[in-house]
Computed example of a mutant assay.
Amino acid sequence: MTSTSLRTGLAALAAAALLTIGVPATALALPTGTVSAAAAEEDAPATCALCLYLISGAEERIDNGASPEQALDQAVAALPASLRPAGQALVDTYRDRILDLLKAGFSPQDICLHLGLCAPSSGRSCPAT
């Protein structure tokens, strides 16, 4: 599976799951302009939001004493059941890179940007965890 098709699949799962918890996909729309072709896909904002939510949850657990590996797994487990498959797919795909960036102290926004799941111009802050 290519990273573009994976992003599309993750985005579709995330968008559907976010709708089930009351977050309309339109509320997550990114501004147009300097976004990449992959980020400009229709459901890319949902994937960005999922990434930010997941990495922020892991970061919070690290701050509370968990190892980065434990924190990432706990963050996936803490996702609503409807988001868990998309969260697990994201972690399965990017685990090593996420862990390296978490250990290096990068912010959730920088990690998701580095992974190509958020657009540089989104300026999006992380949803509350």
Rank of each mutant, 00 (worst) to 15 (best):
M1W: 13
T4L: 10
S5F: 13
S5E: 12
R7E: 07
G9T: 14
L10Y: 04
L10N: 06
A11H: 05
L13H: 09
A14H: 04
L19W: 04
L19E: 12
T20W: 07
I21W: 03
I21D: 10
G22V: 09
P24L: 09
P24F: 07
A25K: 03
T26E: 14
T32C: 12
A37D: 05
A39Y: 00
A39T: 11
D43C: 01
A46N: 06
A49Q: 01
L52T: 03
Y53C: 05
L54R: 01
L54F: 06
L54V: 01
I55N: 00
I55E: 02
S56H: 10
R61Q: 12
I62M: 15
D63A: 15
D63T: 11
N64S: 14
A66M: 14
A71T: 10
D73R: 10
V76T: 07
A81L: 13
P85L: 05
A86T: 07
G87R: 00
Q88K: 15
Q88M: 02
V91F: 03
R97Y: 03
L101V: 04
L101K: 04
L102R: 08
G105K: 12
F106Q: 10
S107K: 03
S107N: 09
D110M: 12
C112T: 05
L113K: 10
G116F: 01
C118E: 03
C118P: 09
P120A: 14
S125T: 15
S125V: 13
C126P: 02
P127D: 07
P127E: 12
A128G: 09
